[in-house]
């Protein structure tokens, strides 16, 4: 028996909106520690890892570990029927081939339930090695989204270079080139407006902007984004989910042939 009650139901709505175009089908894993997901896009270029810790739910019952295969497009269609202020409860019986999403309006005057068919998904969790990243940049998530969107009008790839001077986002296309440098800036009124660069070694890597732009759909989940870079490793683009966990996107770099 599984019953997870999330008072801030909009968080789950936002999570689905941020991953449904990247991943078609995925197994949601439920254990006593939390509700999680790990899935690759169909081209095996990017990987998303989601964790919503059990402590973040108002009520969390998971009698035994369960893996529920869901089509994220269909799940998103159902969650879009929840109001932004609704409480969302996820329910499933052991061995059932369906999951139920229940939506309660804040005033309790409207209660809906949607039952969705589960699917068998053959997927193995990949081992993500612990890594010390050479450069870690934390910046306002809206600023990162703006940069990715702006650059994708000019080129298909972004070179992210971190030096002591700052983090540089560069692209090149048929119409010309673009370089955007964000300097470390910690003297701001609010901590979420800061750009913080922790660099042990300078690093420069190239990534497909199409994927970066897809990741920025998670911007609504967090005011800040953390970009962790090391040569020879996928970049990690992480959005913290308030007091509950995180959504992390891993993207393999492009290399010169």
């Amino acid at each position: 028996m599984l019953e997870l009650r999330l008072v801030q139901g909009s968080l789950l709505k936002k999570v689905l909106e941020s991953i449904k175009d990247l991943v078609n089908d995925a197994n949601f894993d439920c254990s006593s520690s939390g509700f999680s997901l790990q899935a690759m896009d169909s081209s095996h270029v990017a990987l998303v890892a989601l964790l919503l810790r059990s402590e973040g739910f108002e009520h969390y019952r998971c009698d035994r570990n369960m893996s529920m295969g869901m089509n994220l497009g269909n799940m998103s269609k159902m969650l879009r029927c929840a109001g932004n202020d609704d409480i969302i409860t996820i329910k499933a019986d052991d061995g059932s081939d369906t999951v139920t999403f229940m939506f309660e309006s804040p005033t309790q005057d409207k209660i809906s339930d949607f039952e969705m068919k589960l699917m068998d998904i053959d997927s193995e969790h990949l081992g993500i090695p612990e890594a010390e990243y050479q450069s870690i940049v934390t910046m306002p998530s809206a600023e990162f989204a703006r940069i990715c969107k702006d650059l994708s009008g000019i080129g298909d790839t972004v070179v992210i270079s971190v030096t002591k001077e700052g983090v540089k986002f560069s692209t090149r296309g048929d119409i010309g080139t673009a370089n955007i440098v964000c300097r470390q800036n910690t003297t701001v009124d609010k901590p979420e407006e800061a750009t913080v660069i922790n660099m042990s070694e300078p690093v420069s890597l190239t990534f497909a902007l199409r994927y970066m732009n897809s990741f920025t759909k998670a911007t609504t989940l967090s005011n800040t984004v953390t970009i962790s870079l090391s040569s020879e490793l996928p970049v990690v683009v992480e959005y913290k989910i308030a007091e509950m966990g995180y959504i992390r996107f891993y993207l393999a770099p492009k290399i010169e042939e």
């Binding site: 690759m40 081209s43 095996h44 270029v45 990017a46 990987l47 193995e124 969790h125 990949l126 081992g127 993500i128 090695p129 790839t157 190239t206 497909a208 490793l233 996928p234 891993y250 993207l251 393999a252 770099p253 492009k254 290399i255 010169e256 042939e257």
Partner: peptide, 14 residues
């Protein structure tokens, strides 16, 4: 020319 690497080149199946 640039080549897109796969995530499977970095993260292994168990």
């Amino acid at each position: 020319m640039q080549r897109q690497q796969s995530i499977l080149s970095f993260f292994k199946k168990p």
